[in-house]
């Protein structure tokens, strides 16, 4: 498997996001959030997954990169907030994401704020080293 530095991964991730989201390269910074800053919608995550798979010759399983079916399970969401169980599942399933901000404010809509460009770079980095 090819070895990429984090900078190289970032450059490729940037290409993928420019392509999938039609954003300007200067907007794709490490701390940009995919939904809030770059305007990604749910279907874009499928597009991003497919493009990352191609770019890095890896296989990304469903729900590995972004959480799925969280909202429909009421043991995971109570009164619009993520439960302890949900936080545990997220941390376990997505070690590439920093959930500390979300832990402080667990409103479901805050979930979109934790998916940053950096979380994608981390995800790929881990995946390539695995």
């Amino acid at each position: 498997m090819a070895v990429f530095s984090r900078d190289e991964i970032f450059e490729k991730v940037k290409d993928v996001l420019e392509n999938a989201l039609g954003v300007d390269p200067e907007d794709v910074t490490m701390d940009a959030t995919l939904i809030g800053d770059l305007g990604a919608e749910s279907i874009d995550f499928l597009d991003i997954s497919f493009k990352l798979e191609q770019e890095f010759s890896i296989k990304i399983d469903q729900g590995e990169l972004f959480p799925e079916n969280l909202m429909s399970d009421d043991t995971l969401v109570e009164d619009g907030k993520l439960t302890d169980k949900a936080m545990d599942i997220l941390r376990e399933r997505m070690p590439h994401v920093d959930f500390s901000k979300l832990d402080a404010d667990r409103r479901v809509n805050q979930l979109s704020e934790v998916f940053t460009v950096e979380s994608l770079v981390d995800f790929i980095d881990r995946k390539l080293q695995a």
Binding site: L46, D47, Q62
Partner: peptide, 10 residues
């Protein structure tokens, strides 16, 4: 067909 999984295809 470029890519396909349970959720969709490109």
């Amino acid at each position: 067909l470029e890519r396909m999984d349970a959720v969709g295809a490109s």
